[in-house]
Amino acid sequence: MRFVVLGDSFSEGVGDRAAGAWRGWAALLAEGLAGPGQRLEYANLAVSGALSADVAAHQASRAVALRPHLASVVVGVNDTLRHTFDIGLFARRLDRVLAALGATGAVLLTACLPDPGRMLGLPAPLARPLARRGRSVNAVVHALSARHGAVHLHLAEPAWTDDRRLWSADRLHPGERGHRAVAGAFHRLLAERGLARGPAPSPDASEPPPTRAQTALWLATAGTGWVLRRSRDLLPQLLLLAGEELLHPADGIGTGPLDARAETALAAALAATMEG
């Protein structure tokens, strides 16, 4: 049984360190897939910072060549943090990746993800445009998961986002408890379909959840580096988006036109993808 993982830092395992390396939900899930007499081959192709373009251009062909029985594709958050964000391009790329993997006979795993602005507690002018993009990405993921018959996990729901014990100090990636919870949720969905024949991953974490002090320390040290690495792209774009958010209330228009513009772009992306 071959399990191949595509995506970004969420699937790479960032936030769950074991034996000096990232482990994560996919590795935990892999341990519970094979039943008695089965042998599991596991390949994690996910790379921190990957965009949908990276998954489509680089990871997908490698994954198809491995002829997986099970393939997970979780991507999109990094797309929302780039000035090049285009929901139509995202939809077409994800559709191509899922179609290529589905054509091999692989069972597909997908997930929608929380809004990073809400998780970071950003002020409204910064959080709203990220939330708008996140809703569009999740809507595409939902639609394409249904189209390709994927096993889908809803990780944008309050049960996941409001439980801070599930998240690492950076507030963007699951901690050990979160990765174990994701692995357990996917295992249940696969077991219901007879696709997970081993024991479910343990929900018990070996490390306590991060304290407020640890979170503050991350934001002051590693978090600073995270912002600096993305400031050439993310920060200017966020400032432009925030300015647009602030202009509309000042003009007495409100943010309705911005929501309407995003909904129109999403509808066009879904229509074009579904007709393709």
Results as ranks from 00 to 15, higher is better:
181 A>L: 14
182 V>Q: 07
182 V>C: 02
186 F>R: 06
186 F>S: 10
187 H>Y: 04
187 H>G: 05
188 R>P: 01
189 L>P: 05
190 L>V: 08
190 L>W: 01
190 L>A: 02
191 A>H: 10
191 A>C: 08
193 R>M: 14
194 G>C: 06
195 L>V: 12
195 L>E: 07
196 A>R: 08
197 R>S: 12
198 G>C: 03
199 P>E: 15
199 P>H: 04
200 A>V: 10
201 P>A: 03
202 S>I: 13
203 P>W: 00
204 D>C: 08
204 D>S: 11
204 D>Q: 14
206 S>F: 09
209 P>A: 08
211 T>P: 03
212 R>G: 06
212 R>H: 11
213 A>V: 06
214 Q>N: 00
215 T>D: 07
215 T>P: 06
216 A>W: 09
216 A>R: 07
216 A>F: 04
217 L>S: 05
220 A>R: 09
220 A>G: 04
220 A>P: 01
221 T>H: 06
222 A>Q: 09
224 T>Q: 09
231 S>Q: 08
232 R>T: 13
232 R>E: 11
234 L>E: 06
236 P>T: 08
237 Q>N: 12
238 L>W: 14
239 L>T: 15
239 L>A: 14
240 L>A: 15
240 L>C: 11
241 L>D: 14
241 L>I: 07
242 A>Y: 09
242 A>R: 01
245 E>L: 10
246 L>E: 01
247 L>T: 12
248 H>R: 15
249 P>L: 11
249 P>D: 07
250 A>I: 11
251 D>M: 15
252 G>M: 08
252 G>C: 06
252 G>I: 04
252 G>P: 05
255 T>V: 13
255 T>D: 00
256 G>L: 14
257 P>Y: 14
258 L>K: 00
258 L>V: 10
259 D>Q: 10
259 D>H: 08
259 D>T: 15
259 D>K: 05
259 D>C: 05
260 A>I: 14
260 A>Y: 07
261 R>K: 10
262 A>H: 03
263 E>A: 13
264 T>C: 11
264 T>F: 13
264 T>W: 10
265 A>L: 03
266 L>W: 01
267 A>Y: 00
268 A>E: 12
271 A>I: 10
271 A>K: 03
